[in-house]
Computed example of a mutant assay.
Amino acid sequence: MKIAVVAANGREGQLVVKEAVERGHDVTAVVRGDNKTVAKNVVVKDLFNLTAADLAGFDVVVDAFGAWTPEMLPQHSSSLKHLCDILSGVNTRLIVVGGAGSLYVNPEHTTQLKDLPTFPAEFKPLAEAQGKALEELRERSDVKWTFISPAADFQADGERVGSYETAGEELTVNAAGESYISYADYAIAVVNEAEQAAHVGERFSVYAK
């Protein structure tokens, strides 16, 4: 498969590139500066300057964009809109590296993880921004999108176990009552979805056993 990873120099982006390359896919890293990934194919361009021509011919585009400072948080929405606009009406699938804060914690889907009083206050603005981007994405019927939420405890340096469980829109815990996944195992889920196209037009979540 031909896979492009946008914002590939980020920690999750690098792992997605590595996972896809090791499986033999033709991977292109889209980065703003020097390529820090193992991809041999590189497009050096800011996400907001990408055109439809830049992403033409790919089977899958992975959006690994992330922003954390208050002034940058709105770019979760604007960057995703830009990618959707240039992928509108084509067969290329868009897989979005999402967050856990928008996962529901009740069967009625009226309360999200970020709404709980126990949710860390410092992460709430990020969760709100990612949740807004997801809601906007749900309105797009012109793009073959998938949004993948990690577990609540998303560990950058966690061990690559090589397996994970999938769930839907609700926060799900393992047998030990934990909602955890490593960046490396999340990357496996991203590339599996790229290969299998099992959740087109859906948000799903992943967590460690």
Rank of each mutant, 00 (worst) to 15 (best):
H82S: 09
S102I: 08
L94Y: 02
A67P: 06
P150Q: 08
L87D: 03
G99I: 05
L83T: 03
A129I: 09
N91E: 13
V43F: 06
N91Q: 13
L55E: 03
C84E: 08
N106Q: 08
T69D: 15
S79R: 13
G131P: 05
G89L: 03
N91D: 14
L47S: 07
D115G: 00
V44G: 12
L103K: 05
E165K: 15
P74A: 09
A127K: 02
G57H: 06
P125D: 09
A151I: 04
E135R: 14
T146F: 02
E135T: 10
G158P: 05
V105K: 03
L116F: 04
T51V: 03
L94D: 02
D142S: 04
V62P: 00
V105F: 07
F65Y: 13
G89F: 05
A56F: 06
A100E: 04
T146N: 01
Y104H: 06
K114Y: 11
L113N: 02
T69P: 11
P120N: 07
V161Q: 09
P125N: 09
L73A: 06
I86G: 08
F123M: 13
L87A: 03
W68D: 13
K132A: 13
H82R: 08
A129L: 03
L134G: 03
G101W: 00
E169C: 10
D59N: 09
A152R: 04
S77A: 13
H76E: 07
P120T: 07
L50N: 04
A121I: 09
K132W: 10
L103C: 04
K45H: 07
V43N: 05
T166F: 07
W145F: 03
L126G: 10
H109D: 13
P125Q: 10
R160V: 11
V90H: 05
K124F: 10
